[in-house]
């Protein structure tokens, strides 16, 4: 770079010199911002590994996740069972590998449900304002004040435990954050003259909302969703740890911590290894979200 600074003597060919700024790809800029920082890249690597592990779980796991060898229960790590076995003699490593599927499915589906509902509600509230805004926002306030645990218990007692019901409970509980963020972003995006111009052309409200506003309001949502997946995985682990989450014997990291913590003194690997898995994945999603935020930040356009 310092070479450029003093590079005064090289004449630029005036015929080739264009008056407009040289074209550059926005995508390329985003990628270069993203890969220019180490932590987002580490986050991305963790997430990609997680996805690969979840997809190829049957190939990677040494044993089926629910295969019990009661004789070999509570074994310390060995060459046969890298992370030992649990109280029912199941291979811990295999259960962690299969547990990644549960975490990923719940993380993605809950985030998808809550984001879609939240985005639509936030868009409606901010675009129409007035009574619609107040009704939706007061509903969100109520939702935020309602403890997630209580909601999960309520859903579990009404519908029973299980993967689908956990998704419903968490999905409802997580609507408020994307809704409020969306509402705020749309409030500012709709001030732009291109929205006014679309109205002056006679564009329908629906089209203005989804064609003019939503694409411009989306970047911060993407960041929230990425970090949200991590939060959902953490919440699911919490619920499973408390026993109101996924029903056994399905392998989940939260449930494994619960199973293992009784043996924390004698066999710490049982509780710590799924705990580390949770930590790594949540960390990965958070770092990925941070990286996306910087990459999508239009204020950094041209600066970096």
């Amino acid at each position: 770079m310092t070479n450029d600074a003093n590079d005064d003597t090289q004449p630029v060919d005036i015929a080739k010199w264009s008056e407009t700024a040289p074209r550059y790809s926005e995508i390329k800029r985003m990628i270069s911002v993203f890969v220019g920082r180490p932590l987002p890249v580490i986050g991305l690597v963790i997430i990609v590994l997680l996805i690969l592990v979840a997809i190829f779980a049957p190939l990677l796991a040494p044993d089926p996740p629910n295969q019990m060898e009661i004789i070999n229960k509570l074994q310390q790590p060995s060459s046969e069972h890298w992370l030992g076995t649990d109280s029912l003699g199941r291979d811990t490593l295999s259960r962690i590998i299969f547990g990644s599927r549960t975490s990923l499915i719940i993380g993605i589906s809950v985030t998808a449900i809550s984001s879609i509902i939240g985005i639509v509600l936030g868009l409606l509230a901010a675009y129409f304002g007035g009574a619609i805004y107040h009704i939706i926002m007061r509903f969100m306030d109520a939702l935020m004040a309602f403890p997630m645990l209580l909601l999960a218990l309520l859903v579990a007692s009404l519908l029973g435990a299980g993967m689908l019901n956990i998704i419903i409970a968490l999905g409802i509980g997580m609507i408020a954050a994307p809704c409020r963020l969306m509402c705020g972003v749309v409030m500012s995006v709709k001030q732009n003259d291109y929205v006014l111009s679309a109205r002056a052309m006679g564009m329908s409200n629906l089209r203005i909302m989804f064609q003019e506003i939503l694409p411009n309001a989306f970047p911060p949502l993407l960041v929230l969703m990425t970090i949200g997946i991590g939060a959902v995985i953490l919440a699911e682990a919490g619920l499973s740890f408390l026993g109101i989450g996924i029903t056994p014997p399905t392998a989940t990291w939260g449930g494994m911590v619960n199973d293992g913590y009784k043996f924390i003194m004698t066999n710490p690997v049982l509780a710590i290894s799924p705990g580390v898995a949770i930590m790594l994945v949540v960390f990965g999603f958070n770092m990925l979200g941070d990286g996306l935020r910087d990459a999508l930040d239009p204020k950094l356009r041209g600066v970096i």
Partner: peptide, 15 residues
């Protein structure tokens, strides 16, 4: 108006 990136080293007003 000129964009300041890749300025010609001739007179900037030349174009």
């Amino acid at each position: 108006p000129p964009n300041l990136i890749n300025m010609p080293t001739n007179c900037a007003f030349l174009p």
